[in-house]
């Protein structure tokens, strides 16, 4: 079973972060971006359903921009579907680590939990963070 990743956002955040991912990681064949509402007549329900239907034979991980947003809410309707995983709060540290760790055989649920924990640590107020850095590390 193939694993596909879909990044979904209000506006061009999804395609923007995909371009950053390409620069930092390289091959992103398994990832597609879904920029919603670029056209005022955009039909979210139809487009979300299309993604779900197209990936009925795949393991599908959707990462949306914001919890509670309409994009995430629409995907939430499919949350009980097997082999469907939904993460909100799209960010580059999460995406990068996920890409480097994900394989067809990996335990996706466990991987998502671990990578999510790590990526939360990379959101920092640097003015405060530098005050904590004085420890010299050695082998």
């Amino acid at each position: 079973m193939e694993t596909r990743i879909v990044l979904a956002s209000h506006g061009k955040f999804a395609s923007g972060i995909l371009s950053s991912l390409k620069l930092l990681y390289g091959n992103t064949e398994s990832v597609t971006a879904m920029d919603c509402y670029i056209d005022p007549k955009y039909d979210l329900q139809k487009n979300v359903k299309k993604v779900i239907d197209e990936n009925s034979d795949n393991r599908l991980l959707v990462i949306t921009d914001i919890l509670g947003g309409s994009v995430n809410n629409e995907f939430l309707k499919y949350i009980k579907k097997s082999n469907f995983y939904l993460v909100s709060g799209l960010n580059l540290p999460f995406l990068l680590e996920l890409m480097t760790q994900i394989t067809e055989t990996s335990d996706l649920e466990l991987l998502i939990k671990n990578v999510l924990d790590n990526s939360k640590e990379s959101i920092q107020f640097c003015n405060e963070s530098i005050k904590r850095i004085n420890k010299e590390e050695d082998f």
Binding site: L24, P93, L96, T100, Q101
Partner: peptide, 16 residues
């Protein structure tokens, strides 16, 4: 930097 700290370190499973 980004490529090194995140892509490579994670890809290589480096711990140091």
């Amino acid at each position: 930097h980004g490529q090194v700290a995140f892509s490579w370190t994670s890809h290589l499973s480096a711990n140091c």
